[in-house]
C-alpha cells in the first residue's frame, strides 16, 4: 500500500502536478497576475471574474472562460482581460480570469 501511494505521489510530481498557466511558474509557490487581452474599447465600470481549480494535476474543474467572467458582472463591452494563476507546492492550483469592461 505504501509503495502504491509513493508511486502515485512520484507520478504526480513527475507529471508537473497541479501547475498552472503563467508567464512565471514557481516550483513551490506561484501567485502571478498577467494580461490576457486588450481591446480598443475605453474605460471600465464593471469587473467580472471566473475561476477554475486543479488538485495534484489529477483533477481540474471550473469555467474560467472570458464569457463566464463577463456574464458574472453583466459586461457587454470588454476593455481588457487579466488573469491570475496560483499554485501551492503543485498540490492546489487556481486560474482566475478577470474581465474589465462596461
Amino acid at each position: 500500500m505504501k509503495k502504491f501511494l509513493a508511486l502515485i505521489l512520484i507520478a504526480g510530481f513527475m507529471s508537473s502536478c497541479a501547475f498552472t498557466s503563467a508567464p512565471l511558474v514557481g516550483l513551490l509557490y506561484t501567485d502571478v497576475k498577467a494580461p490576457m487581452a486588450v481591446t480598443s474599447n475605453t474605460g471600465s465600470t464593471k469587473v467580472g471574474t471566473a475561476k477554475a481549480t486543479g488538485i495534484l494535476g489529477i483533477v481540474a474543474t471550473g469555467d474560467a472562460s472570458v464569457e463566464a467572467a463577463s456574464r458574472s458582472a453583466g459586461i457587454t463591452k470588454i476593455h481588457h482581460v487579466d488573469y491570475q494563476a496560483t499554485s501551492i507546492l503543485g498540490i492546489y492550483a487556481t486560474f482566475t480570469v478577470m474581465v474589465y469592461g462596461e
Binding site: G43, V47, T49
Partner: peptide, 16 residues
C-alpha cells in the same frame, strides 16, 4: 482586492 488606474477615475474590485 485589485485596483486599476484609468481615465475618469480609479476602479476598485473586491474579489468574490
Amino acid at each position: 482586492y485589485t485596483h486599476r488606474t484609468q481615465e475618469g477615475g480609479d476602479l476598485y474590485f473586491l474579489y468574490p
